[in-house]
Computed example of a mutant assay.
Amino acid sequence: MDDLFLTGGKAYGVLKSHQEEKLNSVNEAFLSDPQYAEEEELASKLEMFKKKYMEFDLNDKGEIDIMGLKRMLEKLGLAKTHLELKKMMSEVIGGTLKDTICYNDFLNMMLGKRNAILKLILTFESMGKEQEQKDLGPPQRKTFSDLP
């Protein structure tokens, strides 16, 4: 079946699968890059980064624009001004004339040694989710010896 004739949910699914294939090929390049050979759990980190990236790629073109970045930060409860968003974007893309964050730039930021504001926000957000998952379930049973 030709992708041009798909509509609605099927077209969206095909679009997302094409996007995921492109991001997977970028992940494979990072896995074989000797610069990241020492990185612990690189494959699982790349998979997590891919899912996060796809979630906020609003135009489904493999790029996060300023509205995608705005949505990402609002979802995390950190609404930013337009000026702050532009500053974050310029940190990630390295002062180039682009106005979107491509997946390569995103991965270089997340895996690089530089501490961009966006990297810090996303790192702490994922650490918070890990803590939330540990706290799930009923509280542990208390005994008299636990009392102060």
Rank of each mutant, 00 (worst) to 15 (best):
G62I: 06
L58T: 11
K51T: 13
N59E: 11
D3W: 09
D2H: 11
G95R: 07
I93C: 07
N115Y: 13
K87M: 06
A11Y: 09
G128Q: 10
Q133M: 10
Q35W: 01
A116H: 13
L76S: 03
D105K: 06
L85A: 03
K16E: 09
S90I: 03
K86Y: 04
F124P: 00
D3S: 05
H18G: 05
N27C: 11
E130C: 08
L31E: 08
K16N: 09
V92H: 01
A37P: 02
K75E: 08
F56R: 04
G94M: 03
F124M: 05
L58K: 09
L31M: 13
P138F: 15
D146Q: 09
Y12G: 00
G137N: 11
L46M: 08
F49T: 02
E38S: 09
L73H: 00
E41H: 14
G112L: 05
F49N: 00
Q140C: 05
S44K: 06
N104P: 01
E20Y: 01
Q19P: 00
K86G: 01
E40P: 15
S17V: 08
Q131C: 05
L147C: 14
L118K: 07
I121R: 03
P148Q: 12
F144H: 07
S44W: 11
K75F: 03
K16Q: 15
E20K: 11
L42W: 06
L120E: 07
Q131L: 15
N59H: 10
N27Q: 03
E40Y: 03
E74A: 07
K22E: 06
P138A: 13
A43R: 08
D33T: 07
K50Q: 15
H82C: 01
Q140S: 09
A29M: 01
E63D: 10
N27W: 00
M48W: 04
L69D: 00
E63M: 10
K113P: 02
L69P: 02
E47G: 02
L107R: 01
Q133R: 11
I66V: 12
E20H: 03
N59T: 14
L118R: 02
D60F: 04
M1H: 13
L31P: 02
